[in-house]
Computed example of a mutant assay.
Amino acid sequence: MKPNVKIIQKSRVYSEEFKREIVSLFEKGNYSVLQISRLYGISGPVIYRWIYKFSIFSKQGQRIVEMKASNTNKVKELEAKVRELERIVGQKQIQVDFYSKLIEIASEELDYDIIKNSNTPQSTGSAKKENK
């Protein structure tokens, strides 16, 4: 005959301080809910319940949605933007080099120093200067 055995379910009780610490990890963006769940062995729905209860960002009637791929998409978009800006800077540098070479060649051909004379101050007009 088998003994009459009941399975006792284990339930963990977490302090409010611990729950707030978990919520702050999520709010700071250090970890996702999935990462916190794996680190601390807490189920995702429990963490979301704590977020709804203790988060400074959650208001009644709002739902917190965590985009899993949002960070990777954001990084890819920023990398593409950096590549585009580097390309533009490269084109501008080519233009600058072209114009400086053009000025150099024009100076040699005309036997006139264009760069030196481009910084001359503007004339003050045809007014006579007073002699002291």
Rank of each mutant, 00 (worst) to 15 (best):
K2I: 06
V5M: 06
I8E: 06
I8P: 00
Q9C: 02
K10T: 12
R12E: 08
S15C: 00
S15Y: 00
S15P: 00
E17N: 07
K19Q: 15
K19C: 14
R20W: 01
I22K: 07
V23G: 02
S24T: 14
S24Q: 14
L25P: 00
E27A: 07
N30T: 10
S32E: 03
V33N: 06
S37F: 08
S37T: 03
R38C: 08
Y40W: 13
G41N: 11
I42V: 14
S43Q: 11
S43D: 15
P45G: 05
V46H: 04
V46Q: 12
I47Y: 03
Y48L: 05
R49V: 05
R49K: 15
W50Y: 15
W50F: 15
K53L: 10
S55P: 13
I56R: 15
I56M: 11
F57C: 11
F57T: 11
S58F: 11
S58L: 13
K59D: 07
G61D: 11
Q62G: 00
I64K: 04
I64C: 07
V65I: 15
T72Y: 09
T72H: 07
N73W: 13
K74Y: 11
V75E: 06
V75Y: 04
K76R: 14
K76C: 05
E77K: 15
E77W: 10
L78M: 14
K81W: 03
V82P: 00
R83W: 01
R83D: 11
L85Y: 05
R87V: 01
Q91F: 07
K92M: 13
Q95C: 02
V96I: 15
F98S: 08
Y99T: 04
K101A: 09
I103W: 01
E104K: 07
I105A: 06
A106C: 12
L110F: 06
L110G: 01
D113F: 01
I115S: 04
N117S: 04
S118G: 10
N119V: 11
N119F: 08
T120M: 02
T120Q: 04
P121E: 08
Q122I: 12
Q122P: 06
G125P: 01
S126C: 02
A127I: 10
K128S: 10
K129R: 09
E130F: 09
N131C: 08
N131F: 11
N131E: 12
K132Q: 01
K132H: 00
K132T: 04
